[in-house]
Amino acid sequence: MFELLRRLRRPSPIADDLWRDARAAVPWAQALDASRDARLRELVARFVHEKTISPIGELSLDDRQRCMLAMLCCLPLLEFGAEGLRGWSQLIVYPDAFRVHRSHIDAAGVLHEWQDELIGEAWDAGPVILSWADVLADCEDPRAGFCVAAHEIAHKLDALDGLLDGTPPLPRAWQREWARDFQRVYDGFVDEVDSGRETLIDPYAAEAPEEFFAVATEYHFSDPALLREAMPEIAAQLRRFYGPSPFG
């Protein structure tokens, strides 16, 4: 009886024609070899089985577009595996950039409030949120150094150990190496940005260690050669964590 119930909960495979059509729109997926393509297809089947994909407002998403979104969210999981899907259940998709209300009480007790315009967000124990227009822009120019879906999934991987600090769950010895390399390169990068020097990597990466990891993840997938030039130690760690970039 329990075995039957387990089988009933298995995700249905992605149909061949749907996979072909969605893959044709996602350059990163097109660049994968056969074994990694098969692994991505299994992850996508699980994603669409487990996650609710919720378009907002007048946005409507067909099966091909939902499969595209799942592909992009699963690309960073090719080596880490389906465990990377743990802890959240919804992908919210806005038609375009969206506004969020922020507030902060400073050391003097003064409340500051403002509006941020975002193209993606990942809540610690909640949904991933993406701008559909920016997802499409990433797919149209996949080597430009941007991939908002990979950025937000990096945050989800980072948070799996309960701490959003730029270090995903890793074996102990590797975690020490990762922390050493990332801290040293991050500190140097922050110094470059603070001094006003032009950087090869988007200066937003200097905002916090978790943003450094997420931005570096975007470059791993969209411009790995530039990441190797700018930060060879970080490029090596991400290649080990994510596997080789689809773009070499």
Rank of each mutant, 00 (worst) to 15 (best):
F2D: 13
E3F: 14
E3R: 15
L4Y: 15
L4E: 13
R10D: 03
P11S: 02
S12Y: 13
S12A: 11
I14G: 10
D16S: 12
W19F: 06
R20L: 08
D21K: 15
A29E: 08
Q30N: 12
A31C: 04
A34F: 08
S35Y: 12
S35G: 13
R36P: 04
R36E: 08
L40G: 09
L43G: 00
V44W: 02
A45I: 02
R46K: 15
R46I: 12
H49A: 11
K51H: 15
T52I: 09
T52Y: 09
S54N: 14
S54P: 00
P55T: 03
I56Q: 11
G57I: 02
L59S: 00
L59F: 07
S60G: 14
S60P: 10
L61W: 09
D62I: 07
R64N: 13
R66V: 15
C67P: 02
M68D: 07
L69I: 12
A70V: 09
C73Q: 09
C74F: 01
L75W: 02
P76H: 10
E79H: 13
F80A: 12
E83M: 08
G84P: 11
G84Y: 09
R86A: 15
G87F: 04
Q90L: 14
I92C: 08
A97W: 08
F98I: 01
F98C: 06
R99A: 14
V100C: 06
V100L: 13
V100N: 09
H101P: 03
R102N: 10
V110W: 12
L111C: 14
E113V: 11
E117K: 13
L118M: 05
L118W: 06
I119K: 02
G120I: 02
D124S: 03
D124H: 07
A125F: 00
A125W: 01
G126W: 00
P127W: 00
P127C: 07
S131F: 00
W132M: 05
V135A: 03
L136T: 07
D138E: 00
C139F: 02
C139A: 08
P142M: 00
F146R: 15
C147T: 15
H151C: 00
E152I: 05
I153A: 08
A154W: 12
K156P: 04
K156G: 04
L157A: 06
D158Y: 05
L160M: 08
L160H: 04
D161M: 07
D161Q: 04
L163H: 14
D165G: 07
D165K: 05
D165S: 07
P171G: 05
P171C: 02
Q175T: 06
E177S: 10
E177N: 07
W178L: 14
R184Y: 07
E192Y: 09
S195C: 15
R197A: 13
R197D: 13
R197W: 11
D202P: 01
P203E: 10
A205R: 09
A206W: 03
E207V: 11
A208L: 06
P209I: 05
P209E: 12
E210Y: 10
F213R: 06
A214F: 03
A216V: 08
Y219M: 01
S222A: 12
S222C: 04
D223N: 07
L227F: 14
A230E: 13
A230P: 06
M231R: 03
E233M: 08
I234V: 14
A235P: 06
L238I: 05
F241P: 15
F241S: 07
G243S: 10
P244Q: 15
